[in-house]
Structures are given as C-alpha cells and as structure tokens.
Amino acid sequence: MNLAVASHPGFLSPTGVEITFVLVGLITLGAALVTVTTKQLVHAALWLVVALGGLAVEYLLLTAEFIAWVQVLIYVGSVVVLLLFGLMMTKAPIGRSPDADSDNRWTALAVAVLAAATLVWVVVDAFRSTWVSLGGAAQGSTEVTGEFLFRQWVLPFEALSVLLLAALVGAIVLSRRDSRER
C-alpha cells in the first residue's frame, strides 16, 4: 500500500496526490474497522460501502482508472446491494443486534491478521522492483487494461467465463431446491 509513497524519490516532500493517498487510506482503514466492530448489521454494510469506496479512490490515485470504476460498479453498486438484500431478508432490525456477536472474535482476529500478513507479503514480494510512476503517463486506462487482457491473459479470461457459469448454475440449483422444499 505504501509502495507509491516509499518508492518515490522525494519521500520527505510528498506531493498532493501522496498526501491524499495516505489520508484516504486512513479513512478506508477506519471504515473497515468500524465495519467489523459495529453491532448494527446494516450499519456494518454501509461502512463497508465507505471502505470499498475509499479503495476505489485509492485506485484512482494510483491512476488505475478502469479498476477504480469497476470497484464502484461491482462492489459498491452490486455486491454491497446483494449483501444488504441478504441482511434485509434474514433479519436486520433497526438498532443493535446483540446476537450478531460471536464468541470467536479472537480466532477471527487471528485469521484476519494472518490473511492480511500473507497478502501484504505476497504483494510486496511480487512488486518489489516495480512502482507506479505518478509523473509520466496514466497507466491504468481502459485501453491499456484491454490490451493487457487480450494480448497476454486470454486463456484466464475464457476460464473466468466458465467459472462464472459454474457459479450461476450453482446459485440456480441452490435456489431451486429451496423453492421445492417450501
């Protein structure tokens, strides 16, 4: 996360973009913390929106324009709505849900820290020697993404469609069984 800042030569005289990046990062982190600690279920989902939106802004600041708007469209616009749907359909009363707390919070914390550590390690290891230059050309535009995708990653792209089809079929099978039982 700090790659852009750390790799920049003028670390002690940050540019406006870098300052914004750090500030938005802090906000995102704060929103994420509130998401997991709040006792109100729907509030948690809404704080998740803030966290995901903050992430989108971070992408934007790293000039990954396309990914940023994908983040907004897919995560804020549909995954969170899906989540809210799920909450509203099961039980999401206004006010606190005392039974929303599980006893495994310490285990959960351990798993979260471990997962975060793994991710950070993977990212640092993978991108050790590359950095995003904010001074030259914007590098994350839709065209560039498209070129990458269809020059180098065609097979994963096609495999993805099969994966999504499998997810779709799975969802339908599950919901159908549900309706037959009723």
Binding site: W69, V72, V80
Partner: peptide
C-alpha cells in the same frame, strides 16, 4: 458506475 450508486 456512479449511476448505480444512487440505489444505495
């Protein structure tokens, strides 16, 4: 993407 946010 932005128009989809309004539904929230």
């Amino acid at each position: 993407a932005m128009m989809g946010v309004g539904v929230l």
